[in-house]
């Protein structure tokens, strides 16, 4: 089992993802440079957080034209598991692998703190959530300026109807509240999957809480889940 972590200019969570894949999930991991076209035989692709291309124009807008993204898109279209974390989620929406868009946080502030997420689908709904049963509340850090999930009403209906909403922002008790939804995301959406359920994007950082020594290893579940 091999994780490929894409490195864009401005990625800053690539090493965290590499560490989570290799230590928390005990898998092989490699870096994939954005100018290359070789996925190096990766079985899972991670688009890490950061500020790819300086977030110029829109967060994630430029990264999708990297040569490696052509291969990642083809890999995803073949059913390969892909996860985008934070800036990686933004890149997935910009590249059309996930629906909707991530907009400026409701209160216009960069948010860097722990939040609570509730798993909205049965375990195994996606390759990354095999170890996360429905209703389970996870604590994870967020660190973003553009994390307010937006989609047109008909698209939101479809996402809800098809069970594509994977994580919602909640309070510690697992309830949806206004304060628990830090960035104003519609339907308190923190993470979604595509129709084929092989691509997952989320704003919170499982990579930054995948080690017991750091006081929280809820995030390790997502990396471990994809390893058979």
């Amino acid at each position: 089992m091999k994780f490929g972590v894409v490195v864009f200019p401005g990625s800053n969570c690539d090493h965290d993802c590499y560490y989570a894949a290799s230590h928390a999930a005990g898998a092989e991991a490699c870096f994939l440079w954005h100018k290359d076209r070789d996925l190096k035989g990766s079985d899972v692709i991670i688009l890490p957080g950061g500020f790819s291309y300086g977030d110029y124009l829109r967060s994630g807008a430029m990264a999708r034209f990297s040569p490696i993204m052509e291969e990642v898109i083809a890999f995803a279209n073949r059913g390969g598991p892909v996860i985008g974390i934070c800036n990686g989620f933004q890149i997935l929406t910009e590249s059309g692998l996930l629906p909707g868009a991530l907009m400026r946080n409701k209160h216009l502030k960069f948010l860097c703190r722990d939040v609570f997420l509730r798993a909205e689908q049965d375990a195994g709904r996606t390759p990354f959530t095999r170890n996360v049963e429905k209703g389970r509340v996870l604590r994870m850090p967020i660190a973003h300026n553009d994390g307010c999930y937006f989609a047109e009403p008909h698209l939101l209906d479809r996402l809800e109807g098809e069970g594509q909403v994977i994580f919602r922002y909640v309070n510690a008790a697992g309830e949806i509240t206004e304060i628990g939804n830090p960035n104003g995301s519609l339907h308190a959406i923190a993470g979604i999957t595509n129709e084929k359920r092989n691509v997952v994007g989320l704003m919170p950082h499982p990579d930054r809480c995948a080690e017991e020594l750091l006081g929280n290893h809820d995030g390790a579940l997502l990396f471990q889940g994809v390893v058979p």
């Binding site: 124009l57 909707g100 868009a101 937006f150």
Partner: peptide, 8 residues
């Protein structure tokens, strides 16, 4: 293709 995001 790039300058605008037609979703928003």
């Amino acid at each position: 293709k790039l300058l605008a995001n037609p979703v928003i």
